[in-house]
Amino acid sequence: MNQDTQASDTTAPAPPSSEKIITIKGMHKWFDDFHVLKNINLEVSRGERIVICGPSGSGKSTLIRCINRLEEHQKGTISVDGTELTQDLKNIEIIRSEVGMVFQQFNLFPHLTVLENVTLAPIWVRKMPRAEAEESAMNYLERVKIPEQALKFPGQLSGGQQQRVAIARSLCMNPRIMLFDEPTSALDPEMIKEVLDVMIELAESGMTMLVVTHEMGFATAVAHRVIFMDGGEIIEEKPPKTFFENPEHERTKLFLSQILHH
């Protein structure tokens, strides 16, 4: 992977490669009769960082959950790293081990220690030997700056620490893509920064990231594109500078006025 590491220049994120890692064409999704995603067309390049924002109910979480098949789409195609997402279980499992996900509610496994949480998937999915998995896990826990918590249980950690463990847990599988579903929305304000710092460091290392968030500072710092969704459709898709300074559509302007002035 040939990535620029000039991420100290935060106004112009390093351009991603031209290789397409996610391709979504004409995707529609319904929950029973409710048309939740309408004609989604999206291409994500390897190394690209995309922030998806929009009012609640706009389908942004549903969109990224379709990418790792936590939700099924009824029409159109989704391809991840060359594999198409269909009913085929084998493909789904391949894609899921290449795509990591971080949830708003952390979703750590409360009956396992932090270290066991992080090593579980490498040991049982990638069949890594335990010692190797633990070494790798400690590396990632150091990267998210909480190696000393390795033997504690999730219930003993703060929200910000739990979310960082969740990020380490996904990273330990060496995914090609990381999906973030409102990672900081359930955190107290003083913990948001520690999680965003981890995400920024991850971005600077060249990870392909799709982030659903309301943290516009983060978008400005690292995103290549900001996507605005409303009512299940992609309304606007622009680089952050243009998105915030010169939005094109009325709905985007309305949304920005609401969130930038709370």
């Binding site: 790792n68 098949r69 936590l70 499992e93 899921r96 081990s97 795509v99 990591g100 996900m101 949830f103 509610q105 952390f106 979703n107 750590l108 496994f109 409360p110 009956h111 579980l120 998937a121 049982w124 999915v125 847990r169 996904s170 599988m173």
Partner: peptide, 30 residues
């Protein structure tokens, strides 16, 4: 069990049986 436990297990690539054996059943039985 919160739905998030099933989702986290799925998103890590665990199969149905591994997810139930390692994550779901220990918590559900408890």
């Amino acid at each position: 069990l919160p739905a998030g436990q099933y989702e986290a297990a799925d998103s890590l690539g665990l199969t149905y049986w591994k997810a139930h054996r390692l994550i779901i059943l220990p918590q559900a039985l408890k």
